[in-house]
Design a protein around this nucleic acid. Structure first.
Length: 563
DNA sequence: ATAGGGTTAG
């Protein structure tokens, strides 16, 4: 009977489920519970309260709760059901499973604050009943806090679980990866494996997302090998995360190989990741080629598909194409452009110097411009030296995001270039008064699987003195080749420290590639310096910029640069 | 036997 229930379950047809239920022997509780959890919410509750051929156990209640969360019922009905359990006679205890199902149903709530407000009583109840530290409720709590963008709360909930199972680890790794804490996420993944906890596709794909965020190629390769060994490589989520990781690390060919290996099992997410890989490289033709393949397979493109295409336009410097695609996506494919799409269009126009058009789009689009829009416009105006637009967009950016340290710096530079030193002083004062600190750029390198992060002018790394000495030594060498000493303030930029460390630790043999990852734009002086350094060390230096790759080789750079 | 965990962009 269980098999019949499963078959009906896969069709998710209430009529079929009902038919199964009528034929089910009253003693077959398992089948009843399975049907209970698959029924739509209202039928499930009715079944539970009236027609169950045996007194409901806590398993029955849990199954009904799971049905509520599956049908995205409002939290009020979840709480109603919980109350009924607590008042049931003979008394039933809330089970780990019931609380976890209830917690899950909260995450579909309208907003983070609402779901958090509802989660608190549930959390305290779970604590009183000593359930919060059991693996199911524990992982649900971790996940709920993760979705509420509270990674430290999530981690606290995880640390409280005395015997975390594979799912608890997965939830915690996801919590860190989703909340932009890639290094701790990878560390937790490593400690999970060290503790002998089985890795699952959930944990592996989340770890891969973290590796992708760092563009950490070695780590992605390790995760790939791990997935092969434990037999998770065929999982679509793992494969997609891996493809994305390779794409973000710039290995488009490897990404493509994964896509081809999936033999048509790839879904929209996978294809979008492939598209994004080409987009990041600014390879519009390749991106459009992939889009064509998606169309041949009758995959309906979504908003992210077009975001990738527009990103490709922007990175390829194809502003006309971007204007064309934002119209086409709606008129031909029925996907309405959102704020992110317009931001991309503004960025495309700004980058090629069409700043007037960019500003007009920002003001005329059907969304109120957010900080990202003004930021992209500001950076375009800086590249094309348009002080007027730089100033207006910079001011608007500061209104929306008074904590954006780069905005103060860029704006102050513009004012200083136009000789308005009083404005410069005002900006520094405003920055200090609002407690905004200029954040050093961050760069990192991966050496034998470990990620080393560097911040400009900081001396936190254990081998700092050696690194600074190595950098000095390289600076002396490049000066012999004719490199001119620049402003001393740029001397210890994060990418230089990362590069010096990579050289110091022998990250790659001569003639091979040295990979420095940086998430912000590499500055003009460092760009120039790296050309010389690549000659001195006879290695190719690869720097991942915010949206393109710089390949320095024998004193030249193969990427198109806009400096 | 029941319940919890996942990918893509910014």
């Amino acid at each position: 009977m269980r098999a019949a229930a499963e078959a009906a379950a896969s069709s998710l047809d209430p009529a079929r489920l009902h038919a199964v239920l009528i034929k089910t022997a009253s003693g077959d509780r398992a089948a009843h519970h399975r049907v209970l959890s698959l029924y739509p919410a209202s039928s499930s509750v009715r079944l539970l309260l009236r027609h169950l051929p045996f007194p409901p156990t806590h398993v029955s209640w849990t199954a009904a709760l799971s049905s509520l969360s599956r049908s995205r019922s409002p939290p009020s009905s979840v709480f109603l059901l919980l109350r009924l359990i607590l008042r049931s006679s003979p008394p039933l205890l809330l089970s780990d499973g019931a609380v976890s199902a209830a917690l899950k149903s909260l995450s579909v709530s309208i907003s983070v604050s609402v779901s958090l407000r509802l989660a608190l009583p549930l959390h305290s109840l779970a604590l009183k009943l000593a359930i919060a530290r059991l693996p199911f409720s524990g992982s649900a709590l971790v996940s709920l806090y993760a979705k509420s963008r509270l990674p430290s709360h999530a981690l606290k909930a995880f640390d409280d679980i005395p015997h975390p199972d594979p799912a608890c680890f997965a939830a915690a790794i996801v919590a860190l990866a989703q909340n932009r804490r890639p290094a701790p996420a990878l560390a937790l993944f490593a400690s999970m494996r060290a503790r002998g906890v089985r890795s699952t596709m959930y944990a592996v794909s989340a770890a891969l997302r973290a590796a992708a965020d760092l563009a950490a190629l070695d780590l992605s390769r390790c995760a790939h090998a791990h997935a092969l060994v434990v037999g998770l490589d065929a999982d679509l989520f793992v494969a997609t995360a891996l493809l994305d990781a390779y794409g973000k690390a710039g290995l488009v060919a490897d990404a493509r190989r994964l896509l081809d290996a999936l033999l048509g099992a790839a879904n929209l997410v996978t294809w979008n990741a492939m598209l994004a890989a080409h987009a990041q490289q600014g390879d519009l033709d390749a991106a459009l080629g992939v889009f064509g393949e998606m169309r041949e397979r009758d995959l309906a493109p979504d908003d992210l598909t077009f975001l990738a295409i527009l990103t490709a336009c922007s990175n390829a410097g194809a502003a006309d194409a971007a204007e064309e695609w934002i119209k086409l996506m709606e008129s031909r494919y029925g996907v309405a452009p959102g704020l992110a799409h317009y931001t991309c269009l503004v960025g495309s126009l700004a980058r090629v110097g069409r700043l007037g058009d960019a500003e007009r789009v920002a003001l005329a689009m059907p969304f109120a411009p957010d900080a990202a829009v003004w930021r992209t416009l500001l950076s375009g105006s800086i590249i094309h030296r348009r002080a007027d637009i730089a100033e207006s967009s910079g001011r608007r950016l500061l209104e929306l995001d008074p904590h954006d340290d780069s905005a103060y710096v860029m704006l102050a530079n513009v004012c200083s270039a136009t000789g308005r030193m009083d404005e410069v002083a005002k900006l520094w004062t405003a920055m200090r008064d609002r407690g905004v600190k200029k954040e050093g750029g961050r760069s990192w390198v991966e050496v034998r699987g470990a990620v080393h992060v560097f911040v400009a002018n900081e001396r936190r790394h254990a081998r700092t003195s050696e690194i600074y000495a190595k950098l000095e030594e390289l600076m002396r060498e490049v000066k012999k080749l004719g490199y001119e000493e620049e402003d001393a303030g740029l001397r210890h930029h994060s990418e230089r420290l990362a590069m010096a460390f990579a050289v110091l630790s022998g990250a790659a043999p001569k003639g091979k590639e040295l990979r420095v990852v940086k998430n912000l734009r590499i500055c003009g002086d460092c760009h120039e310096l790296f050309k010389y350094v690549s000659r001195v060390i006879e290695r190719e230096i690869v720097v991942r910029d915010v949206n393109r790759y710089h390949r320095f080789q024998n004193g030249s750079c193969t990427c198109r640069d806009y400096w």
